[in-house]
């Protein structure tokens, strides 16, 4: 059987948390399947980050073509690596790069692909079985995977990274330039002069359940009364109702406040990724089956447009 290969992502030449989780899983699955764990990473100055990974081999793809992520360059380079290593399984994070590369690579190589995995294990009959989160987190799919190069994208934070170390064999290759996708510039969201939601102890977080931008005032008033800040889910930002610096989740900020008040937020996996480690989560959503209640400590099924003013009133009453 071919190796279990983790495709790693770096941030400022450091492994991302999601990539460390992939390495941990590649190693444990390889042990169970009786094969080797390997990794492939991109960049010229990543030696320190990968030298002690607990895998048999790391392929380092370097050169001027890989300074910034560009789908076609990465894909072509990976396709060659896959052809050479013939992996049993390829693991990527369900990040932008993973979503971009995973599907395209699967289509190019004709290999099966599974997205949104939250668990991977070898069952009693030695079959590789994955669990994936679909339908906005409302259902899980149990899927049997062939070990002939299946490409899997994994939701970050699905299991802890073990942090064990090893002495992998290193192989350096240089990526070729591929025209088609050019990185004009890389930018950082200006960290929001208006708020820094990662510092607030209490977040009053609103989702699409807020329904109308005019209702945001209710959230602002509540935040003020409670001594917290307003944050939100992605659709509220996409609608232009709050600026991007307020967004919690996969493509927004990761927050760990003392209290996260989730109001009219369904709890899609991409949102949970940014707030599930908050110390205390209270969710209010008219749908009692919303996935947010699986991570919340306390919940209620009221209409948030009624609840917010009721809560504000009580808190204001106390202050006097």
């Amino acid at each position: 059987m071919g190796p279990v290969l983790a495709v790693l992502e770096m941030n400022a030449n450091q492994l991302t948390d999601a990539s460390q989780e992939l390495v941990t899983k590649a190693k444990s699955l390889a042990d169970e399947l009786g094969t080797t764990a390997m990794a492939v990473a991109f960049g010229d100055e990543i030696g320190d980050a990968i030298r002690t990974l607990d895998v048999g081999k790391v392929v380092v793809i370097g050169g001027p073509a890989v300074t910034s992520y560009a789908s076609l360059v990465y894909e072509e380079a990976l396709e060659k690596v896959l052809a050479e290593l013939a992996p049993a399984l390829v693991l990527l994070a369900n990040s932008t790069m993973g979503m971009d590369l995973g599907a395209a690579l699967a289509a190019r190589t004709g290999k099966p692909m599974l997205a949104y995995a939250t668990a991977l294990a070898v069952d009693d009959s030695k079959q590789l079985v994955a669990t994936s989160q679909v339908y906005g987190g409302k259902l899980l799919a149990e899927v049997q995977l062939p070990t002939e190069g299946t490409i899997v994208t994994v939701i970050p934070g699905s299991w802890p990274a073990s942090g064990t170390s090893g002495t992998p064999q290193l192989e350096d290759i240089t990526a070729e330039m591929v025209p088609g996708v050019e990185v004009v510039r890389v930018m950082e969201e200006d960290s929001g002069a208006d708020v820094d939601i990662t510092r607030a102890e209490i977040l009053v977080s609103v989702g699409r359940g807020i329904q109308d931008p005019e209702n945001l005032e209710l959230a602002e008033e509540l935040a003020q009364a409670i001594g917290g800040a307003v944050s939100c889910s992605r659709p509220v930002v996409d609608a232009g109702w709050l600026s991007r610096s307020h967004q919690v989740g996969k493509s927004g900020k990761t927050v760990k406040p003392k209290l996260y008040l989730a109001l009219g937020i369904s709890g899609a996996p991409e949102h949970l990724q940014g707030m599930k480690d908050a110390e205390l989560i209270v969710a209010v959503n008219s749908d009692g089956k919303a996935p947010i209640f699986d991570v919340a400590h306390f919940g209620g099924t009221a209409d948030i447009l009624d609840l917010m003013p009721a809560l504000t009133e009580r808190l204001q009453g106390r202050g006097q």
Binding site: L145, H297, T301
Partner: peptide, 24 residues
């Protein structure tokens, strides 16, 4: 290429919020 889906099922959450009902 096709995947072999064994089953779909609702997540059995390892925890669930203590629910406080719908009275505002």
């Amino acid at each position: 290429p096709a995947l072999e889906i064994r089953r779909l099922y609702p997540p059995v959450a390892s925890s669930h919020a203590e629910m406080w009902g719908d009275d505002v």
